[in-house]
């Protein structure tokens, strides 16, 4: 059901007036709120030029923010690739016919989905070296943490996606004489991946945000560099955080827009799979997990 059209009629004269009134009232409330926030910030001197000035200096960007953004995106990019791989491998693992593959895969996925990433990263960095007897680099601790968590979430998404591919697809493939691995690899996974694209992307957004948790092991990501270090130099914690938040929003919006474009493209090419009943991506399985930080 496309929500906009069906829930209400085209507004008649009375409804138009009512909507206009609501618009004005709500708009005024919002403006009032915005002004209040502005005034309060002003009262506390948060708009003071000296606090914002560092952001007009190129060196602030080249010394802190851009390197921080680089570290954030670097860890995110590597973790994205790895967690997609992890996700596919473990989704297929959980669908295996062999119990000795299915159960361990299931246990791994369930465990890493249940443990807060903050604890996981902390442990990978401080605990794992006791096992491997080798120091763990901060970068890899962040990446591995991100991969285990997001990979597990993606594994569940893929599994649901594979389930949602119409049974006729695999039946036809078996009828052609394909083996199970072939059916998986050549028929089910590609279709599932395409139909789960929105879920994958929202998980990627989560992943980008989650790099911020690297602060717990002092990974020099955007929050560390752009907020803590900038503020240590200029004493403008609030301003720095506003700038960094804006950057995160822009980056993630670009990611989301990119996904929308990709989705439209695959749909137009007519190759997106038809799933039975309702589209899975609607969130039946996994949009929720995307709330995972």
């Amino acid at each position: 059901m496309s929500t906009d059209a069906v829930l209400y009629d085209h507004p008649g004269p009375r409804a138009k007036i009512r909507n206009a009134a609501l618009t004005v009232v709500f708009g005024l409330v919002l403006l009032g709120l915005a002004y209040w926030v502005y005034a309060k910030f002003d009262e506390k001197g948060q708009w003071a030029g000296a606090l914002w000035k560092p952001f007009t200096a190129l060196s602030t960007w080249t010394d802190y923010i851009l390197p921080g953004l680089g570290y954030t995106l670097g860890a995110a990019a590597v973790a994205m690739v790895l967690s997609l791989t992890f996700g596919i491998v473990f989704a297929v693992g959980r669908l295996s016919d062999h119990r000795w593959v299915r159960y361990p895969a299931g246990a791994v996925v369930e465990f890493f989905r249940a443990v807060p990433l903050l604890l996981l990263m902390f442990f990978i960095f401080f605990g794992v070296p006791f096992i491997t007897e080798q120091p763990m680099s901060i970068f890899w601790a962040v990446v591995i943490g991100l991969t285990l968590y997001n990979g597990s979430v993606l594994a569940e998404a893929f599994r649901a996606g594979i389930h949602a591919v119409p049974r006729g697809q695999s039946e036809a493939a078996y009828a052609l004489g394909m083996r199970k691995s072939q059916v998986m690899r050549e028929v089910l996974v590609p279709q599932a991946a395409r139909s789960m694209l929105p879920v994958i992307v929202s998980q990627m957004v989560v992943l980008v945000k989650d790099t911020a948790l690297g602060y717990i092991i002092s990974y020099s990501e955007l929050l560390q560099m752009g907020v803590n270090n900038v503020a240590a130099n200029f004493g403008n914690v609030v301003q720095a955080a506003i700038v960094v938040a804006a950057i995160f929003i822009v980056v993630n919006s670009i990611l989301t827009a990119l996904a929308g474009w990709l989705e439209r493209r695959t749909r137009r090419s007519g190759r997106a799979p038809r799933t039975k009943g309702q589209p899975v991506p609607a969130g039946l399985v996994q949009t929720g997990e995307a709330a995972g930080d």
Binding site: V285, E289, G292
Partner: peptide
């Protein structure tokens, strides 16, 4: 129910 469930599980971790 299902997506909300995962949202609230995520919330408790967050």
């Amino acid at each position: 129910v299902a997506p909300l469930g995962s949202i609230f599980i995520a919330l408790s971790k967050n």
